[in-house]
């Protein structure tokens, strides 16, 4: 009996210690008040409200897909940073570095974790969209946040697409060749797009293979060294950075638009 009391008080002693209380002010979350404080007092958890309607915690309603999308984004950021320690974005080294990642680097599944998480993220984001559509959660006042979500989905796919080039194998270069050649056909600013040949001074075409939007995207006339570096930077820094801004807006607006949708 005495032993049991001792154990209980160990956690309590910990919860009442100065160190614990300096980190989590409300102590061990036991009472209703403490539990609400555990959410409100945490910079990460206070993305959530302290209390929710009952249906909002049911997996059958939310499918957990929004949360999983965010989890996968964090997961991809971490594995991505780890991969950057070993990967050099040059035509000379890229491919061999990828092989080394599987064969020489300890825990040789880091690239697998990154790649499969990326594929999953595309799927999970789609399913999140399906759930939001099927519950009609885009309806006022959540119209704007649905739009932000669509942009996030587009960015997710673009992120995945730019990452596809980095192993510098046949799969990568041809998928990106085909993809980036679509930019060639952009009206007016792609050199094979409608209207591009109208932008000319006399005989000199302003929009040609060395000056159009595709050239700016891949940094050359065809997918090569410059493209690899550009896609690497876009993939590792530019798009994740933009996504984080949109994610902040997305999460903020969930709360500001009245929290999770539900029947009235």
């Amino acid at each position: 009996m005495a032993k049991k009391e001792n154990k209980k008080s160990l956690l309590d002693t910990l919860g009442e210690s100065q160190v614990w209380k300096s980190i989590i002010r409300s102590g061990i979350p036991r009472t209703r008040r403490q539990r609400m404080h555990a959410i409100l007092g945490s910079v990460f958890l206070h993305l959530h409200p302290a209390r929710l309607p009952k249906h909002a915690v049911k997996v059958g309603y939310t499918w957990c897909m929004g949360g999983l999308s965010f989890f996968l984004f964090v997961n991809l950021t971490i594995t991505g940073i780890l991969l950057m320690f070993y990967y050099r974005p040059t035509v000379e080294y890229a491919y061999t570095d990828i092989i080394d990642l599987a064969e020489q680097v300890p825990l040789g599944i880091m690239r697998e974790l990154h790649r499969w998480a990326a594929h999953s993220m595309v799927l999970v984001v789609w399913l999140h969209m399906l759930r939001v559509f099927m519950t009609g959660s885009y309806k006022p006042p959540r119209e704007f946040n649905w739009g932000v979500g669509v942009l996030l989905m587009t960015l997710t796919m673009f992120l995945s697409f730019t990452g596809y080039l980095l192993p510098w194998d046949q799969l990568a270069i041809w998928a990106v060749t085909v993809g980036s050649n679509m930019a060639r056909a952009h009206p007016f600013i792609g050199h094979e797009g409608p209207g591009a040949s109208l932008l000319a001074i006399g005989d000199i075409n302003l929009v040609h293979i060395g000056s159009d939007v595709r050239f700016a995207l891949i940094g050359g006339r065809f997918v090569g060294e410059a493209t690899l570096l550009r896609f690497y930077v876009i993939h590792c820094i530019a798009v994740p950075f933009i996504m984080m801004i949109f994610m902040a807006v997305h999460f903020w607006r969930i709360r500001k638009d009245g929290g999770i949708s539900g029947p009235l």
């Binding site: 979350p29 539990r35 609400m36 959410i39 959530h48 302290a50 929710l52 249906h55 915690v57």
Partner: peptide, 14 residues
Amino acid sequence: EYNDPDDKVLVWPD
């Protein structure tokens, strides 16, 4: 999905 709006659950731990 409907529940009494006053009958809410706590985010921690639910």
